[in-house]
Simulated scan of single mutants.
Amino acid sequence: MNLHTDVVETLEKWQPGTAGQEALRHAFLGFLAAREDACRRSCAAGHITASAVVLDASRSHVLLTLHPRVGRWLQLGGHCEDSDTSLAAAALREASEESGMSGLTISAEPVHLDVHPITCSLGVPTRHFDVRFVVVAPEGAPPVRSAESDDLRWWPLTALPPGSEDLTELIAAACE
């Protein structure tokens, strides 16, 4: 199975809990139906990305990265690669690379969708159709900041950093 097929099957099976997420699911499926290259970062119209809400083993803290280009605290994640065979594998790969942790476990289904305008590695304005999964770190696993981050740290779910209010819905979905 190729990545495009996996993304379509993943989103067809997923049943989001809100009308807004259901509307986004349909928009993502429409985009995927129209664009065979929707999972490739070279798709200038926009492309599927894979994110991970990394929770600690107690599920009381979330790991956030201070994104160097965006200048904000965000969940881990990024572009799908040609070697990714599934959307969940892409999210897990991104979480492992950006957290420096091994032994992460990922949810079988997404928990949240988001589409946002961005100028990414293409150097031109595009959109990220971001599919988000829950990832849980092993007990006591220390994160190691990668070159893709200005900072990386655990935040209590009840005390997220200033300027991260737009993560509230995502983190709530991850904790359900």
Rank of each mutant, 00 (worst) to 15 (best):
S58F: 00
R59M: 11
S60E: 13
S60Q: 15
S60F: 01
H61W: 03
L64Y: 04
T65N: 06
T65V: 12
L66C: 04
H67D: 14
H67F: 03
P68H: 11
P68W: 07
V70T: 15
V70M: 10
R72V: 11
R72L: 11
R72F: 00
R72G: 05
L74K: 13
L74N: 04
Q75D: 05
G77C: 03
G78I: 05
H79W: 01
C80V: 00
E81D: 05
E81A: 07
D82L: 09
D84F: 00
T85D: 09
S86E: 02
A88M: 06
A88C: 01
A91M: 09
L92S: 04
R93T: 00
R93L: 03
R93E: 06
E94Q: 14
S96E: 07
E97C: 08
E97H: 10
E97V: 08
E98F: 04
M101H: 03
M101V: 13
G103W: 05
G103H: 00
L104D: 05
T105I: 11
T105G: 03
S107V: 02
S107E: 02
A108S: 07
A108F: 06
E109N: 07
E109K: 10
E109G: 04
P110Q: 05
V111I: 14
V111R: 05
V111M: 08
H112T: 07
D114V: 11
V115K: 12
H116M: 10
H116C: 12
H116L: 12
P117A: 14
P117W: 08
S121Q: 12
L122P: 02
L122V: 05
L122K: 10
G123A: 09
G123W: 11
V124C: 11
T126V: 11
T126Y: 00
R127Y: 15
F129T: 00
D130W: 03
D130H: 13
V131T: 02
V131D: 09
V131C: 15
R132C: 15
R132I: 15
F133R: 08
F133G: 10
F133S: 05
V134M: 03
V134E: 09
V134L: 10
V134N: 02
V136H: 01
V136F: 00
A137R: 06
A137P: 14
A137I: 09
E139A: 14
G140D: 08
G140F: 01
A141S: 10
P142Y: 10
P143S: 05
S146N: 13
S146P: 12
S146F: 12
A147V: 12
E148M: 13
S149A: 15
S149H: 13
D150S: 13
D150W: 04
D151S: 08
D151M: 10
D151K: 12
R153M: 08
R153D: 01
W155P: 01
W155N: 00
